[in-house]
Amino acid sequence: MKYCAFLRGVNVKGTNMKMAEVCQVFKDAGMNDVASILASGNIVFSSDKKADELKKILEKAMSDHFSYEAYLFIKTQEEIESFWNGNPFGKDENLHSYTFVGNDGVEKVLMQEFENAAKADDEDAKIVNNIFYWQVPKGNTLDSTFGKILGKKSLKDQFTSRNINTFEKILKKF
């Protein structure tokens, strides 16, 4: 089966790694057809194992190799298609759209945080098919109230986010 692993916290705040080295860790852990998409920690691969088993194997391999606490979210090709196809926001040159990959139920936690946050004009969030989507004016991603909430340590093992365009690139790689 084909999968994509979304790594949390890669190449931010001092956790720097080369994607070629990450791919080698995946290969050494028994994954096949391994390739990276962008430098933000998106690794496509194939395996006969189930996603929950892969999560344990790959988090341990990444943690051991890079000496950090690795968090990965493993999704199937079908799930990736759902992320892409469910995007409720149209393309807009002035806005970024993000999709959140995470544990079951995290979309409700994120929506609660979003509803409690101060918002910029044109900032919006929606849940579609249990997937949380966020749209924010370009240049406001890290400065927005909600953007700052996303860095909370209490949430780091719950989700990671990607620009919606990343999902299109992943699907093309499949």
Rank of each mutant, 00 (worst) to 15 (best):
M1A: 14
F6Y: 11
L7M: 13
R8D: 02
T15F: 07
T15Y: 02
N16M: 15
M19W: 04
A29V: 09
G30C: 02
M31E: 04
D33C: 00
D33P: 00
D33L: 02
V34M: 01
L38V: 15
A39M: 11
N42W: 06
V44Y: 01
S47T: 10
S47F: 06
K50R: 07
A51K: 15
D52M: 06
E53F: 02
L54R: 05
I57H: 00
E59R: 01
E59F: 03
M62V: 13
S67F: 08
S67K: 13
S67Y: 10
E69N: 14
Y71T: 12
I74E: 01
K75G: 03
I80L: 13
S82A: 13
F83A: 05
P88T: 10
F89R: 07
G90D: 14
L95T: 08
S97I: 14
T99L: 06
G102T: 12
N103F: 05
G105R: 04
G105L: 09
V109M: 13
A125D: 02
A125Y: 01
V128R: 02
I131P: 04
Y133W: 03
Q135N: 07
K138L: 10
G139V: 09
G147Y: 07
I149M: 05
L150C: 15
L150S: 03
G151F: 07
L155A: 08
F159W: 01
N163M: 05
I164W: 03
I170W: 03
K173M: 13
K173F: 04
